[in-house]
Amino acid sequence: MAHMQTDRTRLLARVHRITGQMAAIERAIDDDAACADVLHQVAGARGAINGLMNELIEEHLREHVARPDLDAEARQAGMDELVAVIRRYAK
């Protein structure tokens, strides 16, 4: 994903926040926290992962589907890759 070098720092910061959220969930479960508290933490982590996924999808679309200089074959390959990922993510 060489084209993501410009956004690398921002994307890694998002991943680090998600990692922190997952660690907090692990601690909450280990500390026998109230189930509602754990559920809220999981919902927050899910939202963060969905936000990251949306950003990555947008970047993929811009670089591998919508870029004007792509030929039809490359554009189709980019679209096929994205469809496969979305289908897997939606399961």
Rank of each mutant, 00 (worst) to 15 (best):
T6H: 05
T9V: 15
T9G: 08
R10V: 13
L12V: 13
L12P: 07
R14T: 08
H16F: 09
H16W: 01
R17Q: 05
R17C: 01
G20T: 04
G20D: 05
Q21H: 11
Q21V: 07
A23N: 14
A24G: 10
A24P: 02
R27Y: 12
D30P: 00
D31K: 10
D32V: 06
A34F: 00
C35K: 01
A36D: 12
D37L: 05
L39W: 07
H40K: 06
H40Q: 03
Q41P: 03
V42D: 01
V42K: 02
A43I: 03
A45R: 00
R46N: 04
I49A: 01
L52G: 04
L52V: 02
N54H: 15
E55F: 07
E55M: 13
L56P: 00
L56D: 00
E63H: 12
H64G: 02
H64L: 10
A66M: 13
A66V: 07
P68T: 07
D69A: 09
D69E: 12
L70H: 06
A77M: 08
G78A: 02
M79F: 15
M79K: 13
V83W: 03
V83T: 08
V83Y: 03
I86S: 03
R87E: 10
R87N: 12
R87K: 12
Y89I: 08
K91T: 10
